[in-house]
Design a protein around this nucleic acid. Structure first.
Length: 680
RNA sequence: GGGCCCGUAGCUCAGCGGUUAGAGCAGGGGACUCAUAAUCCCUUGGUCGGAGGUUCGAAUCCUCCCGGGCCUACCA
């Protein structure tokens, strides 16, 4: 096989937060692929970096009263420690805040200008006069101009779903300072990627650069209409690189982040005396990006457009994975499932997670569920019970004699497993690790059956069967070693231990093809201990503690976290008169029915007492069934302007709390309240 | 409303046009006792979401429907 030259990247983790189990899906998926390529004898370089720029980092640094550089330096160290704790091995780990990145950004910029893709437009945005900065949509909150729901972000209302501009918000407030923002306009620079549409059509829809569902997604969503101009500048103050020919403006973080892949490569080249262009401007190099589905659009439209314009190689493949869920739900801080990498490492062996993720990863873009019971069961059954047990039950019978000099008759077992290697390699290559693991475990089953039949523990009892005993162990240990080779990308530690056990390091995939003969066998030591459910529970408990540090003493006994408040900071102060404008009334639900065509809505008939009825459409379908509502009391905003909806006129709203989905909680009055009573 | 993905044994999934539909885990019975309560053998369990169609033949292809998820959308 001719040696391939492969450059691999994982998405750059943002410097504003710690690595958690969700991130690790990607870094482990990538690391396994890279280790596989290296084991196959390919030239493979794995680069990554911290993504450091943007408003969020700037704000965090301000809050802590330190410089951005200090903040990102500290975080980079934490990231690097977390990665190495999980045996994730980069050839270079850089930062987007590096001279190399600045230099490459300038080069890309020049190319975009030269290609006539850059235009200028005025953008009107809200500006925080106290913080002295323009406000991204999510840094502004206010009342929805359509439904009057308070506390809505600047881009859309999560109550009525309307989208709008932050400047349309009623009584907007900056979440940074609490100040009332001003409307200001500033010049922004845009890239007209529509000019590259024929190229993007062709690149995304042919050549197998993307998983089919991703190509379809792009075709249906973005490529189905004119591509919008991409706003790639931000006015000062902004933590990033100032645009050389546009003083006071900075490149938007998503401009310099992917270029960070190249900057990291450049650093690696400098250290190893390599030519940068051999990696980014050569047909002989395959570039593979691994990313999560949330950033598909940057990597499959903007990034190829930028590379094309600047004359660099396009990715051979963008591998996209789904998100991590835990026990079937989104990771949650309050449930303790938002586990940081460092918290995991305090309680559990990284090998467990490496294997577990590998066993769950397919080439699809679907979410990966980490079921904690399954995690324990799978690791114990597959790794300890099946694979490692093979060595454990044969090695100690071979310590004295070592391996036989000639390969005994094994009924074709070794040969079969050697042939399986091709299918396993294909599965790794395609990122179908689930398939690879199943094939490996099937080989493990066959090997265990062999040991069972050969029964070295019986042969041991009869001195005249010493040769048979040695042959049986030679076969058993070689079958085990094949598994260790196949698992080496996933479990580098196991490969290392196997090398020590049999006094022959595992360096190449093809070592699975030839049995090891005549080697001494070292004293057997446990290679992987069983996971206990208590360890997992302890990790979850640790996470809860981190997420909800003890608040004030009086409140501590209730264990309430402050996530909801964090998620939705307090609104600007208002007066009693402001409050009085809103007429809240007790109402009884006298009828409730589904609106079949609506995804979120239930149609409610509310009674305010007597003949006073209101029809209200409430976005609570995901949390309540009509029948459980009829008869109960709710709180209704009674003087809300009626609103024409697709399904009819809505004459008020019922109040509820919660983030949405199944977590919506209607308010009820205490016993004795009567419909029509006003809330004061 | 539009797009995409998924719906196969209690659970997690494989099979994606061709012998009586498979694996692991869980359940039941037995064996072994070398091994980290590991291993091995036997076994229970499925109208392959539903209905049509194409075909000599469909879990596998097509259409429609139902259910779940994700994305998208000015349906308080």
């Amino acid at each position: 096989m001719t040696e391939r030259r492969i450059l691999v990247t994982s998405a750059l983790p943002y410097a504003n937060g710690h690595i958690h189990l969700g991130h690790l899906v990607e870094y482990l998926q990538t690391d396994i692929w890279v280790r596989f390529q290296k084991l196959r004898g390919n030239r493979c370089v794995y680069v990554c970096a911290d993504d450091t720029h943007g408003t969020a980092v700037m704000i965090s640094a301000r809050k802590e009263g330190i410089s951005e550089e200090e903040l990102i330096g500290r975080m980079q160290k934490a990231h690097v420690d977390d990665f190495s704790g999980f045996d994730i091995e980069f050839d270079n780990y850089g930062s987007t805040h590096s001279p190399e990145n600045r230099q490459l950004c300038a080069e890309f910029w020049k190319a975009l200008r030269k290609a006539g893709l850059v235009i200028e437009k005025d953008v009107t945005q809200l500006f925080d006069p106290v913080a002295g900065t323009f406000l991204a949509d999510r840094f502004v909150k206010g009342t929805c101009p359509f439904c009057k729901a308070p506390e809505q972000y600047g881009d859309s209302c999560d109550r009525c779903g309307h989208t709008y501009s932050p400047t349309d918000l009623i009584d907007p407030v900056s979440t940074l300072s609490g100040a009332t923002p001003e409307v200001r306009s500033a010049l922004h620079l845009f890239v007209q990627i529509e000019q590259l549409r024929s190229f993007l059509d062709q690149w995304t829809q042919s050549g197998d650069h993307l998983q089919p569902e991703v190509a379809n997604y792009l075709k249906g969503h973005f490529l189905g209409e004119p591509l919008r101009d991409w706003d790639i500048s931000r006015p000062a103050p902004y933590f990033g690189f100032e645009i050389p020919d546009s003083p006071g403006n900075y490149w938007y973080v998503w401009f310099d982040a992917p270029i960070g892949y190249m900057a990291s490569t450049l650093q690696w080249c400098k250290r190893h005396g390599e030519q940068f262009d051999d990696w980014w401007k050569s047909d002989k190099t395959e570039i593979h990006h691994f990313i999560g589905k949330d950033i598909t659009y940057f990597h499959t439209l903007f990034w190829p457009a930028m590379l094309k314009t600047a004359g660099y190689s396009l990715p051979k493949m963008v591998h996209i994975h789904g998100f991590l869920t835990v026990n079937g739900e989104k990771m949650s801080k309050s449930k303790g499932t938002f586990v940081r990498a460092s918290t995991y490492l305090k309680r559990l062996d990284p090998s467990y997670l490496r294997y577990y993720y590998a066993s769950k990863l397919t080439l699809r873009v679907e979410d990966l569920d980490m079921n904690l019971d399954e995690f324990v069961a799978k690791v114990n059954a597959d790794m300890v019970g099946n694979v490692v047990n093979l060595a454990s039950r044969t090695a100690r019978f071979a310590e004295e004699t070592g391996l036989a000099e000639a390969w005994p008759d094994d009924g074709g077992l070794f040969e079969q497993a050697a042939r399986d290697g091709d299918a396993i390699a294909d599965a790794y290559e395609a990122c179908d690790y689930n398939r690879a693991m199943r094939l490996i475990l099937a080989a493990g089953d066959r090997a265990n059956q062999f040991v069972e039949r050969a029964a070295p523990w019986n042969l041991k009892k009869d001195p005249s069967k010493a040769n048979e005993l040695r042959d049986a162990c030679t076969i058993g240990l070689n079958l085990f070693r094949q598994l260790a080779v196949y698992l080496a990308p996933v479990l580098p530690k196991l490969a290392r231990q196997t090398g020590e056990l049999l006094n022959q390091p595992i360096r190449h995939w093809d070592e699975s093809k030839r049995p090891l003969l005549g080697n001494p066998v070292s004293r057997f030591e446990h290679m992987m201990t069983r996971v206990r459910r208590e360890q997992v529970d302890a990790m979850i408990d640790d996470t809860r503690d981190v997420a909800a540090p003890e608040a004030e003493k009086p409140a501590a006994q209730w264990m309430d976290g402050d996530e909801p408040l964090q998620a939705e900071p307090l609104a600007a102060q208002c007066t009693i008169d402001d409050f009085a404008k809103v007429d809240l009334r007790i109402a009884r639900v006298v009828a409730a029915e589904e609106v079949p065509e609506a995804k979120k809505l239930l149609k409610l008939i509310l009674s305010l007492g007597g003949e006073h009825r209101r029809t209200v459409f409430a976005g609570i379908k995901s949390a309540y069934k009509p029948e459980e509502l009829v008869g109960r009391l709710v709180v209704c905003v009674a003087n809300l302007a009626p609103r024409q909806m697709k399904f009819g006129m809505s004459e008020g709203m019922v109040v509820a709390s919660g983030p949405g989905g199944s977590e919506i909680y209607l308010l009820s009055p205490d016993e004795g309240a009567k419909p029509g009573q006003r809330l004061h």
